[in-house]
Design a protein around this nucleic acid. Structure first.
Lengths: 140, 140
DNA sequence: CTCAATGCAAAAGGTTTGCACGCTT
DNA sequence: AAGCGTGCAAACCTTTTGCATTGAG
């Protein structure tokens, strides 16, 4: 498993700062979805000294630039994830421990696009998350 | 289009109150997704005199009872919608005008369950929303 | 030197909770 | 009469914004 698909700089940024580099570096290391708060905590743990506000702003820049994906948890928190811009896939998330498995669903993509087209919709996107209890958590 | 699949009482409720009846009646009349805040505003408009807190609590009871569906908007707000308890389906939502089309995706259901099972997940559920621009909004 | 970016604190949402009162049963 | 349900207000959480300061270019 190679590392990051996240660039070293933010495309539309006019200045590159230590803080943004820290966020980008972190995104290159972690897998799966994380909330802005979680990412901020990780940065604090590694003494990265980045403000929560900056984490939010940097993540939003990356989302706008299409460099990362974001979805919402059934709870209102926004999740961010490094994601190759070309390959679109979904996630299987454990309700209990948060373990995330990436799943590709080409059939689902086509189905969604087709259904939307049938109803005259254009500029189509979709969100799909599968929730469940993973084997480890089911045992306990 | 017939009205409601929402019952007149809440299944696990020990008491039936005017407020709950108001919420249930409203749910039977409206189509599509609405936030708790929107529903509360509608109730105020019709002088239903139901507190926001009660709207939230009643909606949560209904979700727990499986009488309505809820999802989250990419914005953090929770959406509630009357939904037949047996038939599970998804929604195609116009980004611009909010028009909602119900779509059934049996293949997707099976795919989601199967993928989850392959990874040892149990107690599986999923959320799928398709976003796009509807024909009417695309013209303008 | 300039001005974009930061970070604190406060605001701004939306949702949940504590607690006294009222109404269903 | 008993206690569930209500509603107000306050608490809570996450996210956004104002503004003075910092530092990249």
């Amino acid at each position: 498993m190679v590392g990051s698909t996240v660039p070293q700089t933010i495309p539309n940024a006019t200045r590159n700062t230590r803080q943004r580099a820290e966020v980008l570096a972190l995104l290159g290391e972690v897998d799966g979805f994380h909330t802005a708060q979680q990412l901020h905590r990780m940065l604090c743990d590694r003494d990265a000294r980045v403000g929560l506000t900056t984490v939010y702003r940097t993540l939003q820049l990356l989302v706008d630039a299409g460099e990362i994906d974001s979805t919402r948890l059934p709870g209102g928190e926004q999740l961010f994830r490094q994601c190759s811009q070309s390959r679109h896939h979904h996630h299987l998330v454990c309700r209990s421990c948060g373990r995330t498995v990436e799943v590709a669903g080409p059939a689902v993509e086509r189905w969604a696009d087709q259904v939307a087209a049938e109803h005259g919709f254009t500029d189509v996107g979709h969100t799909l998350e599968i929730f469940g209890t993973c084997a480890a958590c089911a045992e306990s």
